[in-house]
Design a protein around this nucleic acid. Structure first.
Length: 274
DNA sequence: CTCCAGGCTTACG
DNA sequence: CGTAAGCATGGA
């Protein structure tokens, strides 16, 4: 177990962990989460990030994306007064670099669901099929741990119609029918194409995995929240043709905010959560 | 009761 | 092509 004191700039731990990207962190006195099968306790004192974990310092820096040049990113996506006020209001909010498998499963679970239910389902999956690291804390179940599981064995996870989708991709990865980790070497478009071969993964979930796990910052996932806030901020910039509206919003956003538009998405999402 | 939630698949014109 | 029902579950 190690203790790290990390000097940060443009980093806000509360914003980063409560923005809705990750589903397993809880805050007491410290923030407590499980990453890569290890527990992380984190708190912020001024610009200093305090971490207690068995993980390497480099893993922590990577997870919180502390190497991102936020000055450059802010300058790049700061296209108007509306987004500027959000960059100010939520200054220090970072994307997180999630494990691809946990990210993929989490967002398959997010389909037509509430954040509350997603969190409950993921917690149940960890408790049922993960490994207990210390009392009350479980790792995220591996593809192997889920690949032999039947739908009826997942009943208490309350995944509904999403359960078979999770089990399917678990066995596909275990059987090497799907190379999830190979996506890191693909372009954004290639990765999108590859991820959308998975049953239960469409445009939006693919974008989430590309942004949150593979760091493709040119990705701009459009869900119901983003659709609402984009409608509120930029309704004059795209046509509302019902079924293709979300694609139009994503297209506009990628062009408007540029190569770091994924970061703009994070701040817009935060604002819509309230 | 109905409607919606970090959508996607399938079926139908 | 484009559109719409259906999908499990829980809360407002």
């Amino acid at each position: 177990m190690s203790m790290y004191r990390i000097n940060t700039k443009n980093f806000n731990l509360d914003h980063t962990l409560s923005c809705g990207q990750v589903f397993r962190w809880e805050k007491n006195d410290w923030w407590v989460g499980v990453v890569n099968g290890a527990i992380i306790r984190a708190k912020q004192e001024g610009t200093r990030l305090i971490i207690e974990s068995s993980l390497d310092r480099k893993v922590i820096l990577d997870y919180f994306r502390l190497d991102d040049d936020m000055e450059e990113i802010y300058a790049s996506i700061n296209r108007d007064r509306k987004i500027a006020s959000l960059l100010q209001k939520y200054r220090g909010l970072r994307l997180i670099r999630q494990d691809p498998w946990e990210c993929l499963v989490s967002y398959i679970c997010s389909s037509n669901n509430t954040i509350r239910n997603i969190k409950n389902s993921i917690r149940h999956m960890c408790e049922c099929f993960g490994r207990e690291i210390e009392s009350g804390y479980f790792s995220f179940p591996t593809p192997e741990a889920l690949s032999g599981v039947e739908v009826c064995d997942m009943e208490q996870c309350r995944l509904g119609f999403r359960a078979p989708r999770v089990l399917k991709i678990a066995s596909m990865i275990t059987n090497h029918e799907f190379d999830l980790y190979g996506i890191k070497d693909l372009s954004y478009r290639e990765g999108q194409e590859e991820l959308m071969k998975i049953s239960g993964v469409g445009n939006k979930i693919a974008d989430c995995v590309l942004l949150f796990a593979f760091g493709k910052l040119e990705s701009f996932p459009v869900d119901t929240h983003i659709e609402q806030i984009m409608e509120r901020f930029y309704s004059d910039r795209f046509k509302g043709s019902k079924s293709k509206k979300r694609e139009e919003i994503a297209g506009f956003a990628r062009n408007y905010f540029g190569k770091y538009c994924g970061y703009a998405q994070e701040y817009l999402y935060m604002e819509d959560l309230g």
